[in-house]
């Protein structure tokens, strides 16, 4: 799933899709943690997932706010437009 999320992030140009792919990747990472926790029978994996979740939430809210700003400015969601920091 992580690999899929990575593919999605690299391929799609739409910002939203990139964000969605990022979520997928986070989720996948969390899944890995849970599995590890389940393996050892410890609660730590779940705790980790808990944190990841919180992080994902925060990241999504800020990211979406930025997407909105971008849309307002560029009237487009093309990620490649955000290349003013190119060398």
């Amino acid at each position: 799933m992580f690999a899929l999320g990575l593919i999605g992030l690299l391929v799609r140009r739409n910002i939203l899709f990139i964000l969605m792919s990022t979520e997928v990747m986070l989720n996948a990472a969390g899944l890995a943690f849970i599995v590890a926790g389940a393996r050892w029978g410890a609660a730590d994996g779940q705790v980790m997932f808990f944190f990841i979740l919180g992080l994902a939430a925060a990241e999504v809210s800020v990211g979406l706010a930025l997407v909105l700003r971008m849309h307002h400015q560029y009237r487009s969601l093309d990620a490649d437009l955000l290349s003013r920091m190119r060398g």
Partner: peptide, 17 residues
Amino acid sequence: LRRTETGRVRWYAAGLA
């Protein structure tokens, strides 16, 4: 090397990956 500084997120992400 300048060409690698595209300013595009996906490009950087690819690099990271």
